Amino acid sequence: MAATGDEAAAMDSISKEPAGASAALNPALSGSGQLQRPEDAAESPTTTPKKPGANSDGGVETAEEAVEPAEPDVNELCNDMFEKMAIFLQGELTATCEDYCLLENMNKLTSLKYMEMKDISVNISRNLQDLNNKYASLQPYLDQINKIEEQVSALEQAAYKLDAYSKKLEARFKKLEKR
């Protein structure tokens, strides 16, 4: 278990040595205060005393304890997370696949509707062509009807003129008869 906050500050102060004690305990320093070469320090074996509070019953963690293998709970949690992530991704892929299937079905239905509309438009075009052909075959009769209508209107005009003339003649005849 790693120390945090005030505990960490206390451990740091315990683990640091005073400067004077460090010079007395450090074998690399010579009596004149100059550094010895590392080879010389290796030749003069000295034992380094243990730091106070660094023993195992002092409650201070060492670096070796921090590198312990993960607890089984963490492994179980990781496995659980990966399983759930796999389920989630499987669901996402399934949803995407279903979306594509729906889109494919919609495209098929749209294609069928367009085919039906094409058939309807072909039928309408064919019927329109038939109507145009029938109208073309009736055109001479329609022209004759138009000519007859013109002749009837001309006859009607002539009848009105004849009626007006006959009224004038009748009025003259009555005038002559009275005399």
Rank of each mutant, 00 (worst) to 15 (best):
D99V: 08
N107P: 00
Q144S: 10
Q157H: 12
E64T: 09
A42M: 04
S15E: 13
L155A: 08
E17K: 09
E39V: 10
Y135H: 04
E170D: 10
Y160A: 11
N132D: 10
D12P: 01
S56M: 14
S15F: 09
L89W: 03
K51S: 11
E170F: 10
E17W: 09
I120C: 02
T4M: 11
A42P: 02
E150K: 13
K147Y: 12
G53E: 03
M115H: 13
T48I: 11
T110K: 13
Y100G: 00
P49T: 07
D57M: 10
A8G: 03
E177T: 01
K50C: 09
P45V: 09
S111H: 06
N132E: 14
L138S: 03
K167W: 04
E83C: 00
M117R: 08
F82L: 08
N107M: 10
K161W: 09
I14R: 11
C97P: 03
K175P: 05
D99G: 01
K84V: 00
E156Y: 10
G53C: 10
N79H: 05
D143M: 13
T96G: 06
T4K: 13
A42Y: 12
L35C: 07
K167H: 06
E68V: 12
A66S: 13
P49C: 06
N26Y: 09
T46A: 13
L77I: 08
L35P: 04
N133P: 01
K167Q: 05
T4Q: 14
L138F: 15
E17H: 05
Q139T: 11
Q129E: 07
A21V: 07
L176Y: 03
E104S: 03
N75K: 11
E7A: 03
I148G: 08
E76I: 07
D80P: 01
A10L: 11
T4D: 14
C101W: 15
L128M: 01
S137T: 15
P49I: 06
R37C: 12
G91T: 05
E43H: 05
L109N: 07
P49N: 10
D99Q: 03
I148A: 14
I87L: 00
Q90V: 05
M115R: 15
G53A: 04
A159D: 07
L176G: 01
